[in-house]
Amino acid sequence: MSILLNKDSQLVVQGFTGSAGSFHASQCIEYGTRIVGGVTPGRGGSTHLDRPVFNTVSEAVRQTGANASLIFVPAPFAADAIMEAVDAGIKVIVCITEGIPALDMAVVKRYIALKAPCARLIGPNCPGVITPGECKAGIMPGYIHKAGPIGVVSRSGTLTYEAVYQLTREGLGQSTVVGIGGDPIPGSNFIDVLEEFEADRGTDAVVMIGEIGGSSEEEAAAFFKKRMSKPVFGFIAGRAAPKGRRMGHAGAIIEGGAGTHASKIKAMKEAGITVIENLSEIGSTVSRLRQTASAAAAHSRS
């Protein structure tokens, strides 16, 4: 079991014939992802990576039955590409593109809310989504993942790889790993993904990786307290970051004293999320606490 994507998901790649699109689409195909075609306006009718290329997303959907999209379109045109996918009826849209203007994303969010509120946009500025062994829609290295019961949701790319690597090393596989991206207005926030993990029978614990800036971790903590029964393990990057400077990600900035590391840690602890302070201890902490919990369960049964 998994969330968002599985072995039956059929993906169309927008920005298919560009250099990033080509490289990553072929890596996804190699992983076993069902990529059924691509879209590059003006290149319709041709073939790329042995898949048909279409001029528009709606044509690709009509011809192939695609139900998910993976976007590599350059930043100036990416917001439009997302809205095109929404209009074509795609329900899961994963946008990898970095550098989309924040106001473009404000327009996209409103468009989705009015046109197709149940469509799920993941990203932009993210590594994508992977359900290990079934579907890789993104730029993450597939081989570090392993199928299993841990859900992972994160605002960062390489930091997610680090966490996944540690989990896999401890023998803990992942149900689905979701990168929601480092932008100030992401398509989905922590709550959207936590809600899916809570409902997924294949997930029994979640690792949540946040960073400074904004208040989505605080909101996620409140959501956890009210609505979640599964354990959540949290890590927040940016303890050592200065105020007022953007730390690489457009959304990673402490503005007007809000969005600090301390406030996020405090909110998560108060809500009952297990906070991991040392990045190197994500895998070992999850492993240790799960063993303790299962030993306690076995004890209560006997």
Binding site: S154, S156, T158, L159, I209, I212, R239, A240, L279
Partner: peptide, 10 residues
């Protein structure tokens, strides 16, 4: 990676 860079500083 920006997140890992922050995590490394931490």
């Amino acid at each position: 990676g920006a997140g890992l860079a922050m995590g490394t500083m931490d």
